[in-house]
């Protein structure tokens, strides 16, 4: 199950083989896409937060979604996972239409996400957090819940599965602790482990490294790579370029809501469009005071909205 140190794991080879020879163009078709996105648009008042023309995610790969602040990455994530409603566009997951599907059904179909600000359920124990991820629980039905014999057996199976995952993520010692007592990095691990309890095909990680103690970074990276080993597809948002280079097979770059480039990590890092997108603002003339304030405002709004689990939005009606 674990990748052997030093050798390139087979899944990585397979993923790289699938990407070989693909042109580094936005919207390039992939040999075996698990997720196909077409013309997704999300506007907040006058501002277009997301405007993605076409994007495909290759099955069995680790794809990074990068872009400067305010590029619409998290908003795009929210659209795809049903946490926000797109104004237009459609996307398919495993060939199944997913636009307009509510968040919980998206998850049931095997597309499971994590959040930028970790959502560990802090007043539940680590084990309860894990159990919650399991699907098709008989005991989650109101009437069955009243008769423990109906769900005890299943609960034991779930617990066993959760224990294995926790051991893998080195959280087994904490399993009876309240999730609130974990460190930031441990919460990230727990959130990822909990997402795996759902049994996803596509794991969508929103900034999995944000706020994680550097000592834990390597172990987290290992876990992400592990997901691919187990045949899952990973799509993740990240800022840390080193990490992107290290683990991703393919990189998609967003700026101002649109996909401006995609390709293998090394190609992307030297793409002038990407450099422009990241550094553009600094190349240009200094910002005026109003622009600075506007930028600050947007960033704040995004931060606040993300804190509430909703996408960033801007003024709809002026005062």
């Amino acid at each position: 199950m674990h990748a052997d140190e030093g050798t390139t794991p087979s899944s990585r080879k397979a993923a790289l083989a699938a990407f070989a020879g693909l042109p580094s163009e936005p919207g390039v078709p992939k040999p075996d896409p698990i997720l196909v996105v077409d013309k997704v648009v999300r506007r907040f008042g006058g501002l277009t937060a997301v405007n993605v023309d076409h994007v495909e995610i290759q099955r069995g790969s680790i794809t990074a979604l990068i872009g400067p602040n305010g590029a619409g990455k998290t908003t795009f994530f929210n659209q795809l996972t049903g946490f926000d409603t797109a104004d237009a566009g459609e996307w398919t997951f495993n060939g199944r239409k997913m636009n307009g599907v509510p968040a919980h059904k998206v998850a049931r179909h095997g597309m499971v996400r994590t959040f930028q600000l970790t959502k560990a359920l802090s007043k539940l124990t680590v084990m309860e957090n894990m159990r919650l991820g399991a699907q098709g629980q008989r005991g989650e039905n109101f009437f069955n819940a009243l008769i423990p014999s109906l769900w005890r057996g299943q609960e034991d199976e779930i617990t066993e599965r959760a224990e294995k995952l926790l051991a893998r993520f080195k959280l087994d010692a904490k399993s009876e602790d309240f999730a609130g007592s974990l460190s930031g990095g441990q919460r990230k691990l727990l959130e990822m482990a909990r997402a795996l309890m759902v049994g996803p095909e596509l794991v969508m990680l929103d900034e999995p490294m944000a706020g994680v103690n550097p000592a834990l970074t390597q172990s987290l990276l290992g876990h992400v790579k592990d997901l691919r080993e187990q045949g899952m597809t990973v799509l993740f948002v990240e800022h840390d370029m080193d990490m992107v280079r290290d683990i991703s097979d393919w990189v998609i770059v967003m700026a101002q809501g649109a996909v401006i480039s995609e390709g293998p990590p090394d190609t992307i890092m030297s793409d002038p469009r990407v450099i422009d997108a990241y550094l553009g603002a600094h190349h240009d003339a200094p910002l005026s005071a109003e622009e600075l304030e506007e930028q600050l405002h947007e960033a704040e709004a995004e931060l606040q909205a993300e804190a509430e689990g909703t996408p960033a939005s801007t003024k709809e009606a002026a005062e």
């Binding site: 509430e308 909703t310 003024k315 009606a317």
Partner: peptide, 12 residues
């Protein structure tokens, strides 16, 4: 929910 003159971002 944002009211007549409210702004949308206030709602959760």
């Amino acid at each position: 929910p944002q009211g007549i003159l409210g702004r949308r971002e206030r709602i959760g």
